[in-house]
Design a protein around this nucleic acid. Structure first.
Length: 285
DNA sequence: AAAAAATTCAACCGCTTATTT
DNA sequence: AAAATAAGCGGTTGAATTTTT
């Protein structure tokens, strides 16, 4: 098996290149007995001619029993895009939101599918969904605004009628102040409603945010926006009509995401945990 | 059917950060 | 507190595979 592939080689006593099934088995056995970490001692413990760095990489990206070995689903794709829009090239951070997926896998997937700026059909669907949600929220906002204004005018009229009867003995409140401050008040209300709408949109469209308090992953908004703009990564983001980075508004359909949280659980190991070794006649025991 | 081009993905490298001595 | 070592991360490479011409 040594040198099976052209670039299998040794350098400074360390083997490099593709791993053989025997090497995999040794590494799996070692991790099973001694646990993860202390990668530099793997060579001593197993006789493997692999550096600690190489062992760690092989374990993390390929041998870990909790890895999904299936294709990225459209739901996962949406999550990747959303989180990439949020955090930029922080692949390991993104990977933490996708059980069973590695940073390397996500990085490769993103580069091959989206680096050149060609959004997939799934993404276009997600984008359309987001825009529709936004339109609906906006029309709802307008409606609320109009209702609020009508109510305010009605109250104003009632108050004025009341004042006419008490001969001006009572000083008028700020709410019946000149038109200028009324307009300012409206403007303030509008901004608050807009903020509410943004918050609602975020909560509704971003299920990851909803788990931020319980366990997750979501760095502060400030850190998020900072990272998104670093290293030019924001330049790769598709843009919304208004110029906003469209990942931020949320693409998720909650059902889509929840559906796919199976299989990522990291249960205990047993002899079925490494089927790819069994396939090669290298059963775990 | 064959050659060329494009895509995929495992593994490497260099750098940064965390931990140990 | 400083140096050494280990772990982790993101970018890049290149062999293998798939698709296109």
């Amino acid at each position: 098996m040594e040198g099976q592939f052209g670039w299998g080689r040794e350098e400074g006593g360390w083997r490099k290149g593709p791993w053989t099934a025997q090497e995999d088995k040794l590494l799996v056995e070692c991790v099973r007995q001694h646990g993860e970490g202390r990668w530099n001692s793997v060579a001593k413990l197993t006789g493997l001619k692999r550096s600690g760095k190489s062992c760690r990489l092989r374990w993390v990206n390929y041998l870990r029993p909790d890895l999904k070995r299936s294709k990225i689903t459209p739901q996962e794709e949406s999550v990747i895009l959303e989180l990439h829009a949020l955090w930029g090239n922080r692949w390991s951070t993104i990977a933490r939101s996708l059980p069973g997926r590695t940073d390397n896998e996500i990085k490769n997937y993103w580069r091959t599918h989206f680096k050149k700026g060609k959004p997939s059909k799934n993404i276009e669907r997600a984008r359309a969904r987001f825009l529709k949600q936004r339109r609906e929220m906006q029309s709802q906002l307008l409606l609320q605004q109009q209702q609020g204004q009508d109510q305010q005018h009605q109250q104003q009229r009632q108050r004025q009628a009341g004042d006419d009867h008490d001969d001006g003995a009572v000083t008028r409140e700020a709410s019946s102040s000149p038109a200028v401050s009324l307009a300012a008040q409206h403007e303030e209300d509008l901004q608050m409603l807009q903020q509410d709408m943004d918050d609602l949109l975020f909560q509704f469209c971003c299920p990851i945010a909803s788990c931020a308090s319980s366990s997750c992953l979501l760095p502060s908004a400030t850190a998020a926006s900072a990272s998104a703009s670093e290293e030019g990564s924001s330049g790769d983001h598709p843009q919304l009509d208004g110029g906003a980075t469209w990942g931020w508004g949320g693409l998720w359909n909650l059902d889509d995401v929840v559906d796919d949280v199976d299989g990522g659980a990291c249960g205990g190991w047993d002899d079925t945990s490494f089927p790819w070794l069994q396939d090669q006649g290298l059963a775990f025991y």
